[in-house]
Computed example of a mutant assay.
Amino acid sequence: MTTAAHRHHHQHHDDAHGFVAAVEQASSERGLRLTPLRREVLELVAGAGKPVKAYDLLDRLREKHGNAAPPTVYRALDFLLENGFIHKLESINAYVSCHHPEEAHQVPFLICDTCHCAQEVCDERVAELIEAQAKAFGFRPQAQTLEVHGTCKNCREA
């Protein structure tokens, strides 16, 4: 049985600096190599404050490193995705930092179509329900992306 305490035991990182520090710690604990470039891409994603596209990241990298190329950014993003440090929002082809990079997980997102912010829904019951339904149909899921589009509270009140 999943309890509220179990669902919300993650430490959330709302500031970019705290998030990057948590990723550095998780990388160290897992024996992963967070290279300077991977760290820089991570900082850009975390500092964006909303979903950011790969080519926007590339433009930001080129401000400091004029010779940055798309494969460089995509390799860094792939590393960060594979290790659960960021999420890719497929419907808008953009990346966001993970609220709890200490462990891999699948979570749904609420995406505002007005301001383009994305809110990670930190409730394991949603993923467990989808997993249970898939199992009931004899389906073996390999990846799970649930993105709900609409209008956030701030945009509705504006």
Results as ranks from 00 to 15, higher is better:
106 Q>F: 14
70 P>Y: 04
63 E>R: 08
101 P>T: 12
123 D>N: 10
75 R>F: 03
102 E>P: 07
76 A>E: 13
118 A>K: 01
123 D>K: 02
78 D>R: 09
86 I>S: 00
109 F>V: 05
75 R>T: 10
107 V>D: 12
103 E>W: 07
83 N>R: 08
93 N>E: 14
83 N>C: 10
71 P>F: 08
73 V>T: 13
91 S>T: 11
124 E>T: 13
78 D>H: 14
66 G>N: 08
70 P>C: 02
73 V>Y: 02
120 E>V: 02
74 Y>M: 07
117 C>S: 14
98 C>G: 02
61 L>E: 07
91 S>G: 07
59 D>H: 11
108 P>I: 00
101 P>I: 05
96 V>C: 09
74 Y>V: 04
63 E>P: 02
112 C>D: 03
68 A>M: 11
82 E>R: 15
97 S>K: 15
101 P>M: 09
123 D>G: 05
73 V>K: 02
100 H>I: 01
112 C>I: 08
96 V>E: 11
86 I>G: 05
72 T>K: 07
122 C>A: 11
108 P>S: 09
123 D>W: 00
117 C>W: 12
64 K>R: 10
108 P>F: 03
119 Q>D: 11
71 P>W: 06
59 D>T: 14
103 E>R: 15
69 A>Q: 15
122 C>S: 14
80 L>V: 03
64 K>P: 01
119 Q>K: 15
65 H>P: 00
113 D>I: 08
74 Y>D: 00
122 C>K: 08
81 L>C: 10
114 T>D: 11
67 N>K: 15
64 K>M: 07
89 L>A: 05
62 R>W: 08
77 L>S: 04
91 S>E: 07
82 E>C: 02
70 P>R: 14
117 C>F: 12
96 V>A: 06
76 A>D: 13
101 P>S: 04
107 V>R: 14
101 P>H: 06
122 C>T: 14
116 H>S: 15
105 H>I: 00
90 E>A: 06
80 L>G: 10
81 L>S: 08
74 Y>R: 11
115 C>S: 02
103 E>P: 03
101 P>Y: 11
121 V>N: 11
86 I>K: 01
115 C>F: 01
79 F>E: 02
67 N>I: 06
78 D>G: 12
102 E>Y: 09
120 E>I: 04
78 D>F: 05
93 N>I: 00
63 E>A: 10
101 P>A: 11
117 C>H: 15
115 C>Y: 00
117 C>P: 01
99 H>F: 15
72 T>L: 03
84 G>T: 03
86 I>R: 01
117 C>G: 09
105 H>T: 04
65 H>S: 11
80 L>F: 10
105 H>P: 05
91 S>C: 00
107 V>C: 13
80 L>C: 06
83 N>H: 14
80 L>T: 09
99 H>A: 09
64 K>H: 12
72 T>H: 03
118 A>M: 05
